[in-house]
Design a protein around this nucleic acid. Structure first.
Lengths: 211, 211
DNA sequence: TAGATTGTTAATCGATTAACAATC
DNA sequence: TAGATTGTTAATCGATTAACAATC
């Protein structure tokens, strides 16, 4: 009954496709058609979606509107857990747009930066506060998740602080290995440098193969 | 002799660890010690690193300095391919810092944005130009890679343009499916919304399990 | 030489694909 | 009912782990 990590990793992408289909007024799609769209096999799609119960209709296919709602619930997108963001630099501001508007399961309630230049500023109506007030803010508001967009060197100390304040979910853009220090934390890492290095590798490999 | 995608996906992370070790003056590490650090098995590490040749020394272990150099070459980090960036918003500026300074295999030579408000501005000494001049710029400079940090709706048209100008590598922060339209393009997707949704899922699952 | 640790083969495990019975 | 397409089991494939011989 346990659902594998590889299935789960595909769920947001399914949600994305069903969401688009449903917005485009498509009321019915077969695993074959979807497989062609997504570049997967129909078999994999049927197995994946079936992990969570019979969302399809035999002889008919899948209903994007219905699947969309199901996937929203599975991914807990309507839950709106309180989140804070550390680091109001370019990355922090970019991520604020991602998280504050889209319907991604979180509600951004505060932004923090050590640089006094941000004092009193707001991003999308969310105030930027000084790092100093993180403890008080967390005790008062009990956020569950923190987005880490801070400089490398400050990450370890900040994670210690946030963990001590009860935060257990981390969307981590730094290279600091949170899981290693706090095995019970829930961490989603985004390593942009890994991603661009992979692109570099793929490009050199393609060139090598062509010669 | 073909190296699997799962091995390749781990290479940047190995590079990161060997890089840190070498900076910290570690001159020797065994697969067992590294496995403990990285949360992998020693066996997997030995198999992975052996895909590219015998980088280890029997009875001794691995030399981080040496491995670091080897991985740099494998990932083609010294190659500095010319890259342009489309979209000078927060995300674009954040990514500029990533790519313009770090040693990631690319050299950022131009930034483009349709918004005239950016006209004449620079980010890290790289000029921001109008979208209109993309064709001329590409013909003159022949960039190989484009970073896509633009709004969703503009992506399809922009990819058509860039592809027609000879660009085949894409670091894609948009949701537009480049590979589907241009199967011979080399694409590395970064879907931030997928990542945050997975975090949402993991957090709700943990809560479910605890009750 | 003895000890340590890799390189590499064989065994296991899990994920993907194929096939088809169930059913709308 | 006939046709279509899912749900689900069985077969295949690939990735991970374990074991040990090679060798520094």
């Amino acid at each position: 009954m346990k659902i594998s990590a590889s299935v789960i990793a595909r769920l947001p992408r399914y949600y994305r496709f069903f969401s688009d289909l449903s917005e485009n007024g498509v009321t019915r799609i077969s695993s074959n058609e979807l497989a062609e769209m997504m570049g997967l096999t129909a078999s994999k799609i049927r197995q994946d979606l079936n992990c969570f119960g019979g969302f399809g209709h035999q002889g008919y296919g899948y209903n994007p509107v219905q699947l969309c709602e199901q996937l929203r619930d599975i991914l807990a997108l309507p839950s709106k857990r309180k989140a804070i963001l550390i680091g109001a630099g370019n990355l922090g501001r970019a991520v604020t747009n991602q998280i504050a508007f889209a319907d991604n399961g979180f509600d951004l309630i505060g932004i923090f930066d050590s640089d006094p230049m941000f004092k009193g500023m707001k991003i999308k109506d969310i105030p930027i506060m000084s790092d100093d007030v993180i403890p008080k803010f967390c005790i008062d508001n009990n956020p569950e998740m923190a987005v880490l967009c801070l400089t490398e060197s400050k990450a370890p100390e900040m994670v210690d602080l946030l963990y001590s304040l009860g935060i257990r979910g981390f969307w981590n853009f730094s290279h600091f290995d949170i899981k290693r220090k706090y095995p019970d934390a829930i961490v989603e890492n985004v390593h942009l440098s890994d991603s661009v290095m992979l692109l570099s590798y793929k490009m050199i490999k393609k060139k090598d193969e062509e010669t």
